[in-house]
């Protein structure tokens, strides 16, 4: 199965790059400041950290979910959703780049209005309010091309990278101890893999399409994690991503969900979603169990 995934990724690579570019262009056009139509902005019943802006904490591009364009605009399916949402309320999308671990704190402490594409955990749900489900992404371990991967045992004694704060970090640290290297950002971990400083990198499949791995797809393989790998529970093998807001600002998530529903009803969302590769699915566009 793992070999099959690796082969499928090669076929997908060209397609998803084109899709990411198209979504980025949509994001660029939709991410321009302020509403351009003559319709009055909808009345906001939620708070924003900075007047006139929808401040979004992001831990870097995560194609095809979110693409942080160099000009500060947001692309990807998140760009489709949030640019039109901001426009509806007369806001301008403002990206606030940070690390994954800090992103959650930025939202929790109200310095950013929203965090992008966060998986659900019981602990996170106690401090963050989740919007509706966006996409389900399989967890994978990346290895260098040609590495004879036959499950976690084939990486025994090797250094494996994980990102601080991601759902796999604690589990891998408990399982591997010092062999689990904690990176602060995705590009750092990916670069270490390409450098040969780590033999494996556990994260979501989306990173296959993010730099620097996207530029070196012929040098790496992605192996989907299966139940029991490194004693991981099934709940972290297929992860649904949500946007998150602070518990005190749940009205923002509710407004976003309403906007998403409008996009679903108008067929816009299906159009965006149908262009995604088969690996990315969603069970139901609903929020998870809230813990706030």
């Amino acid at each position: 199965m793992q070999g099959t995934i690796a082969r499928r990724h090669r076929r997908l690579a060209a397609g998803i790059t084109a899709l990411a570019l198209a979504l980025a262009l949509v994001g660029c056009s939709a991410g321009t400041p302020a509403p351009t139509n003559s319709e009055p902005a909808a009345e906001m019943d939620f708070d924003v950290a900075q007047d006139g802006f929808l401040t979004i904490a992001t831990y870097g591009s995560n194609p095809p979910v979110n693409i942080d364009n160099p000009d500060g605009t947001l692309g990807g399916i998140e760009g489709d959703l949030l640019n039109s949402f901001a426009e509806k309320y007369g806001l301008q999308v403002k990206l606030q780049p940070t690390t994954f671990a800090s992103m959650i704190l930025e939202v929790q402490q109200g310095r950013a209005d929203m965090g992008l594409f966060v998986y659900w955990t019981e602990e996170r749900a106690q401090t963050l309010y989740y919007s509706s489900a966006l996409l389900k992404v399989p967890a994978v371990v990346f290895t260098e091309k040609g590495f004879d991967y036959e499950g976690p045992d084939s990486l025994a004694g090797e250094k494996i990278g994980v990102i601080v704060g991601q759902v796999w970090a604690e589990l891998m640290q408990k399982e591997l101890g010092e062999d689990a290297l904690l990176f602060q950002s995705q590009p750092q971990a990916a670069q270490a893999l390409l450098n040969g400083q780590i033999k494996g990198y556990v994260t979501g499949l989306t990173q296959m399409f993010n730099a620097p791995l996207s530029e070196h797809q012929d040098e790496i393989d992605a192996h989907e994690l299966v139940d029991g790998d490194w004693n991981m529970p099934e709940s972290v093998l297929q992860n649904t991503g949500y946007n998150v807001v602070s518990c005190e600002n749940s009205a923002l998530a509710t407004a976003l969900d309403e906007h998403l529903q409008e996009m679903i009803d108008s067929g816009t969302w299906e159009e965006t979603f149908s262009a995604l590769p088969d690996e990315f699915t969603v069970d139901e566009t609903v929020p998870p169990t809230q813990g706030c």
Binding site: A101, E123, R124, Q126, V164, E170, Q173, L182
Partner: peptide, 11 residues
């Protein structure tokens, strides 16, 4: 780093 890890688990 271990402190950052603790924050990411407990918020």
């Amino acid at each position: 780093l271990s402190g950052t890890m603790a924050v990411s688990l407990s918020f």
